[in-house]
Amino acid sequence: MIGALFVTAVKALVLILALLFAFAYITWIMRRGLARFQVRLGPNRVGPFGLLQPIADAVKAIFKEDITVAQADRLLYWLAPLLAFTFALAAFAVIPVGPDGWVVANLDMGVLYVFAASELAIYGVFLAGWASGSKYPLMGGLRSIAALVGYELALGMAILPVVLMAGTLNLQEIVEWQKQHGYFIVYQLPAFLIYFIASLAEMSRTPFDFAEAEQELVAGFHTEYSSTKFVAFYIAELLHWIVGSALIATLFLGGWDAPFGLPEIPVLWLFVKWALFIFLVLWIWASWFRTRYDQMIRFAWGVLLPAATVWFLITAYYVVKGGMA
């Protein structure tokens, strides 16, 4: 018992360190990558190819003055970045990076757990907006809640056909199923598209990044945050991106499974597929506009949700008739 706990703790620690490292370098990839799309160079001064830039950024951000607004609700103001950060990190616990033991928590209801954790992270955003005692963050927080109401149902509905076909909520087993039968992106292309669009909103990336729309809301929900609290939000936001991409790779692209009969190496293949989605989101970010949040909600409820429901019914009929499960 103690031994198992110890193993889990070590795994969790390794994962957290890996994620924080990934976070640091995703900022570098983000900035260099965006620069490539935008006919400029991006950060290339600190270290070779600007590789030490994330460290310089972190040092700079942490040494800023930590300001608490006079009208802020102190407890919530302090709690919000912590919530956002913790739940964003926690979501990764059930994502398998390799066969069998290569997962921190092999939960039977892993899919539900990921959902719960990433939706709880919205509390961080909303409470930050509420507790800041300032108008711009308030609007950012409200927008994020409105967006949640929009994309959440479509997101859940799009994942149901996958769960139905695999017959399990355990992410490790979903990957195993795909290893045997082929990836879900083949069987479930409509569900994949709906899920991808909805998860862009979940990760609050372009074109659904209105909760922190710089052009109107200055910095949205974290306008009044500085120093470490700001860093916590910044990390949480990018972790959403990291976890969201990893989850899509796991659910629809076979996770850690090696494609095309290539040798199986834990971590590597998930990383490759994950990087694919990171790049895709970056690409969208560089090329698209931001929607208005009412347009996004109308789209989510009017197009995504009905489409997901219809596809779910089709899949259910097929599973019952064909006995795929």
Binding site: R40, T206, Q215, W288, R290
Partner: peptide, 8 residues
């Protein structure tokens, strides 16, 4: 309108 790239 949220499009970064045309700017550059």
């Amino acid at each position: 309108l949220g499009a970064l790239t045309p700017f550059f």
